[in-house]
Design a protein around this nucleic acid. Structure first.
Lengths: 115, 115
DNA sequence: AGATTATATAATAATTTACTTATATATAAT
DNA sequence: ATTATATATAAGTAAATTATTATATAATCT
């Protein structure tokens, strides 16, 4: 309900709000290392598939991630062409590494062969 | 309702969520230049005093800002001792300068003499 | 073609958020 | 002391958010 702020400020705030969610922030941090399909996120977060899909949709709508179909799978990746890419990168510097999650998946044999 | 994230991740996400609000993000950007009292924020944002107070409370609870009483006024400042200070600084680099707001206040004679 | 797998979307419910209005507290001024 | 000013807090409400369940779509496999 706020009027007295610039357009750019609005955009910056909306990016921060998007990343101000544990699930989405973790996803984006994971995508810093490499790409993932939806079902891998579902396995990592023990979350429902629609919940994951909806988070990815928001990230995609904001242009932070991009999607590519690969057979049955949708592969998500960071979008380096986003005007907020460097902001995202700076933020991720302060976020704990999530590579252990993938190792867990692989050890449990839950890593799908979508790549 | 998410389990599978680290504690640090939770903290990082909550800081981003806090800054993911136009009013609070603008406040914090303003505080990068210098300190302000509550009534100046009220004048800048054309918002109600309780609304401003509540935003400042959240920033204070998160340790991002600190307050000092100066007579009748409460002066708010960035807290350089916050463990998230450098994160906040990095984020603010991507946020448009807000110094024009103060100039507006001064020109309109609305700048209170709380400092 | 029919069944299976991966994903998206729609509708809905629960929770959270950010206001509002009303009131309390604390300092300053008369 | 009383009044005024600055700020905080409490209670209530409307809007936004995030999950769930059910269903649709799209590619693959038999």
């Amino acid at each position: 309900m706020l009027i007295e702020t610039t357009m750019e400020m609005e955009n910056a705030a909306s990016i921060l709000k998007l990343l101000g969610d544990q699930t989405r922030l973790t996803m984006v941090k994971m995508l810093e290392s490499h790409d993932y399909c939806v079902c891998e996120f579902v396995a990592v977060f023990h979350a429902s598939q629609p919940a994951i899909s909806q988070h990815l949709r928001k990230l995609k709508d904001a242009g932070i991630v991009k999607e590519t179909r690969k057979g049955q799978w949708m592969i998500y990746a960071l979008n380096p062409n986003s005007p907020y890419f460097t902001l995202v990168q700076h933020i991720l510097q302060h976020v704990p590494d999530q590579d252990y999650r993938i190792k867990e998946l692989e050890e449990q044999g839950l890593r799908v062969s979508c790549d």
